[in-house]
């Protein structure tokens, strides 16, 4: 898939994953790369940017296995933004699906 396009979707994926619970960076990256092929390193710049935009806050928490991990928590502003993105996504996929359906019809 096109790289530019995928990076936009990445933002949506990260926000969705943080909607129900706080997660740390590694976990986010793994969850996403289980489903979509991504360049895993590009998630951190995204996390930093979204944190600066105040969509997340971060905190450190000790883990049982080793050093403390940085957790990301969705803010109200972030949740609002997520809902916008989801609405856009549905609209977008609906449009594309419609086009695909029409295309198949002609053949």
């Amino acid at each position: 898939m096109n790289v530019q396009f995928k990076k936009g979707v990445l933002e949506l994926c990260v926000l969705v994953l943080l909607d129900k619970q706080d997660r740390y960076g590694y976990e986010l990256v793994q969850r996403i790369s289980d489903q979509i092929e991504i360049s895993e390193g590009s998630v951190y710049p995204l996390l930093r940017r979204l944190t600066k935009e105040e969509y997340f806050t971060t905190y450190l928490q000790e883990s049982s296995e080793g050093p403390s991990r940085k957790y990301y928590k969705l803010t109200d502003k972030g949740r609002e933004y997520l809902h916008e993105l989801i609405a856009e996504w549905h609209e977008f996929t609906r449009g594309v699906n419609q086009l695909i359906k029409e295309g198949e019809h002609i053949e």
């Binding site: 740390y24 960076g25 590694y26 990256v29 790369s33 360049s39 895993e40 390193g41 590009s42 951190y44 296995e65 080793g66 050093p67 991990r69 940085k70």
Partner: peptide, 22 residues
């Protein structure tokens, strides 16, 4: 942190570096 957790999960440093990209 990413490397540390990846190593805990049994990956090698090289594997993690490759998956992170350039």
């Amino acid at each position: 942190e990413y490397f540390t957790i990846g190593l805990e999960e049994g990956k090698t440093e090289e594997e993690i570096a490759v998956s992170l990209g350039s």
